[in-house]
Design a protein around this nucleic acid. Structure first.
Lengths: 91, 91
DNA sequence: TTGATAGGCAAGCGCGTACTTGCCTATGCT
DNA sequence: AGCATAGGCAAGTACGCGCTTGCCTATCAA
């Protein structure tokens, strides 16, 4: 999971899915090229999505010939849980 | 910074420094071998510490011939800030 | 001053991983 | 049926990264 967010392209995909949940593969490709200036091929994005899915950060739902991707940022909470911020506790 | 916590050895180093702040290089090596069962060489750990320092997660303070390492988990807050947990907002 | 401890620098090796290339399957529109 | 769209699979390539190896410097104790 930590390796999943180590790649900048995968982080951009997460940003994109947070901004607009339930996108298909081609939608993600297009918006990555547009908004983030990334020129990743379809296969590259597909492989990134596989990694994100294996990390539990993205869930997949088939709809006809489309494959819609939904983001789930819950696993990232393990990071804040493992190394809690040094701020003042909850009074 | 994301790549810094992608490596399990570096995560173990962070755990070790949270448990006991201000350790030297050899202390970290020893405790990594003891508690985590990792047999990393001194140079390997040193390079990991360089990465953690570059990521802003570890600060260094020289004391005589020792090099004390202090942890700073604040940069990790950027993760929770970038992808906020989907829980209920703050009412 | 000599030896031992703590750490630094740089080159090289091996493997993982991000990406490409080429081809194949499935669903939808007309 | 026929074509276009959406996606899958597998092998191959290139580069980064973690780690080792070898040697060097600096601080402290005797």
């Amino acid at each position: 999971m930590f390796k999943a967010i180590a790649d900048p392209t995968r982080r951009a995909i997460l940003d994109e899915l947070v901004d607009r949940d339930g996108q298909s593969l081609f939608e993600i490709c297009t918006r990555l090229a547009m908004k983030h200036g990334l020129s990743s091929s379809r296969q590259a994005v597909s492989q990134h999505l596989d990694v994100l899915e294996a990390a539990g950060l993205v869930t997949v739902r088939r709809e006809g010939r489309y494959k819609l991707h939904h983001v789930d940022t819950a696993p990232l909470g393990a990071i804040a849980e493992r190394w809690p911020p040094p701020g003042p506790g909850r009074p």
